[in-house]
Design a protein around this nucleic acid. Structure first.
Length: 462
RNA sequence: GGCCGGGUGGCAGAGUGGCUAUGCAGCGGACUGCAAAUCCGCGUACGUCGGUUCAAUUCCGGCCUCGGCCUCCA
């Protein structure tokens, strides 16, 4: 069945057809590197990682571009406050961003352009906008003239009157129209700046994505993604800049993930409900569980819906993974090579506008089928299906033993646990159940759960 | 105020014009020395008021209500 995506441009689900058959181009707005990624930053990365995996499964060639914004007033402010240089801040933050996203099992994009490496392209694009009458220079600034574009506002569904009426900030005196936005602004000597036809300055926020998508994907490309909050003004302005500068249509399918809440409230530092990805990874019972649990929790809600991040949601994600890895652990010694086929229902769910919750429900059904499978062939088939489904979602990629045992975080060592299990087995053999239960209880209190099975006792850190 | 998206069983969360996911929690049973895990079974939900229909949780309209955006924000 065809891939269908909810397209903000048309406000309905559209059948996806790449511009060039067999080749897909996707651009997603990446981070501004001034601070560690919080869980809100993680959502689009995870969502579009699943889309990337799906596209790779469906098309022979996919080019995924996600930018790094490394010139921005927030970065400048951070440098001023901390005394560190801008380069130190952006390089470190970029590295930590990569680490955090890798921990969430997100694949690296094919191209990760940095804004500061594309200043020349931005200047060229601004020049074209001035030449075609879509931008003007005023007091060292270059501004996009929204009045020069009849369709401005159509994407985000607002009229110019509304935008003017809604303008909350004081309108800069050099603007011809209150809705005009900055393409280039002057930089004083102490701030990052580049020489340009309009003097030493730095780019506005929106122009970088227009310049970098053009450079790496061309004027017209398939998919542009980002958070819902970027629809206006960021994406509206990107469309204005790119279509006016290039004279061609811009992105064809626009996808936006919903906002993230925390325990029912908007996440903010002042409310004290602000979590970085690292905070949550550190809270996991072992170092192998955190990232995958966060990822599953995020995917358990459809990307278009608001997502309420709660401790309970994370706990449930971990329980779900316990269940799935339990099923896989029971067949750890069964070879599933040749059976790694994604079952149709899973593929169909994802092809229907990335319905990850439905896909996950199929994972559960596959785990049940695996638990019930009686014959070797059945087990291999079910295991292969579950693993292939998981891989498409970026889940279930580690060995069950790694999931359950992880690395000791303060608790008893693997050797201590094994020794206790031997001692308990002897007590059980001697029918000294009081002692056996005492050992089990003792381990439980130290975070280790024992499970007696037909093949002996297994354990996990929980 | 304008625009947009929601309100589903104890909880999370899909979906559908009639056959009413999935998981967690709960209850009963099997298995187990006891547990855990697993398996079997149980609980019949769709904000509200109208309309369309043989039939609506699903379509349409009003109302109530929650959330987001409206040039910092993923």
């Amino acid at each position: 069945m065809p891939l269908v995506l909810y397209n903000t441009l048309t406000r309905r689900k559209d059948v996806f057809e790449p511009l060039n058959p067999g080749h897909v181009g996707m651009y997603v707005c990446g981070p501004t590197v001034y601070d560690r990624a919080h869980i809100g930053n993680a959502r689009p990365v995870i969502v579009f990682d699943v889309l990337y995996r799906l596209l790779k499964a469906l098309y022979p060639s996919v080019r995924y571009v996600r930018n790094i914004t490394d010139v921005d007033d927030k970065i400048n402010a951070r440098a001023k406050d901390s005394g560190e240089t801008i380069a130190v801040i952006t390089e470190r933050t970029t590295r930590l961003f990569h680490e955090d996203m890798a921990a969430l099992n997100c694949l690296a994009p094919d191209v990760e352009p940095r804004a500061t490496a594309h200043i020349a392209q931005m200047i060229a694009m601004i020049g074209r906008l001035i030449a075609t009458g879509h931008a003007y220079e005023a007091e060292g600034h270059v501004l996009f003239a929204v009045g020069s574009m009849a369709e401005y506002g159509a994407f985000s569904g607002r009229s110019k009157d509304e935008m003017i009426a809604g303008a909350r900030v004081e309108v800069a005196p050099y603007k011809n129209d209150p809705g005009d936005f900055v393409l280039w602004k002057p930089s004083p000597p102490e701030l990052p700046g580049w020489d340009s036809p309009w003097g030493r300055g730095r780019p506005g926020w929106h122009i970088e994505c227009s310049a970098m998508s053009l450079e790496h994907l061309g004027a017209t490309f398939d998919i542009h993604g980002g958070g819902q909050d970027l629809v206006f003004p960021h994406h509206e302005n990107e469309i204005a800049q790119s279509t006016c500068a290039n004279g061609k249509p811009f992105a064809r399918y626009w996808l936006h993930n919903g906002w993230l809440m925390v325990e029912g409230e908007k996440m903010s530092k002042s409310l004290g409900n602000f979590f970085t990805v690292r905070d949550l990874l550190d809270q996991a019972p072992n170092e192998t569980q955190g990232g995958e649990a966060i990822r599953l929790a995020m995917l358990a809600t459809h990307y278009h819906q608001p997502f309420d991040w709660t401790a309970e949601a994370l706990r449930q994600a971990r329980t779900t993974l316990d269940r799935l890895y339990t099923a896989l652990r029971a067949v750890a010694d069964i070879d599933a090579n040749g059976y790694d086929v994604v079952p149709t229902p899973v593929l169909a769910a994802l092809e229907d506008d990335l319905n990850t919750p439905l896909a996950i429900s199929h994972l559960h059904e596959q785990a049940s089928a695996l638990n019930k499978a009686a014959h070797l062939e059945d087990k291999a088939r079910c295991k292969g299906a579950l693993l292939a489904s998981g891989r498409l979602l970026g889940l279930l990629g580690q060995s069950p033993e790694a999931w359950f045992r992880g690395a000791a975080v303060g608790g008893p060592s693997d050797a201590d646990i094994e020794a206790a299990i031997v001692a308990r087995a002897e007590a059980r053999k001697a029918r000294n159940f009081a002692e056996a239960d005492r050992i089990r209880k003792d381990l439980a209190e130290r975070g280790v759960v024992l499970e007696d099975g037909a093949a002996g006792t297994s354990w996990k850190r929980a």
